[in-house]
């Protein structure tokens, strides 16, 4: 059972570094959201920044990969994203085609490199 729960210190870290940093933005959205007009310049800017931050998160996972992804050479990681993007655009924006093509390129590359 203690294996299941683990150490309480880690759970506190989860709360401080994981739960609160996420919920604070959701609560702020709930709090201030009602006053913001959907077409306002401020919301437009916030949306653009949010999209760019998401792009940063995507880039971070590819550029400074976590866990097992770090074992894949950088050229192959970038190549897989570019190939997936090509498939996504060629299929008139099919998320599925893009994901499958990107994954296929990465798997074929790791297999080929041994």
């Amino acid at each position: 059972m203690s294996d299941f729960i683990g150490d309480w210190h880690a759970l506190v870290v989860l709360l401080v570094a994981g739960v609160i940093p996420n919920q604070i933005w959701r609560l702020l959205g709930l709090w201030f959201g009602s006053g913001l007009d959907e077409g306002s310049d401020l919301l437009m800017w916030v949306k653009a920044v949010a999209t760019a931050i998401l792009a940063g998160v995507i880039a971070q996972i590819v550029v400074q990969p976590p866990g097992a992804l770090a074992s894949v050479p950088w050229g192959l990681r970038y190549g897989a994203i570019v190939a997936g993007l090509g498939a996504f655009l060629a299929t008139r924006r099919s998320i599925f085609a893009g994901v499958v093509c990107g994954e296929a390129v990465m798997l074929a590359g790791t297999w080929w490199l041994g």
Partner: peptide, 22 residues
């Protein structure tokens, strides 16, 4: 396997990129 782990982690950037783009 490490390869499967890497493939699973690559899924997040791929899916996020394409769903945001769509």
């Amino acid at each position: 396997s490490q390869t499967f782990g890497a493939a699973v982690l690559l899924l997040t950037p791929l899916a996020f990129l394409f769903s945001t783009l769509r």
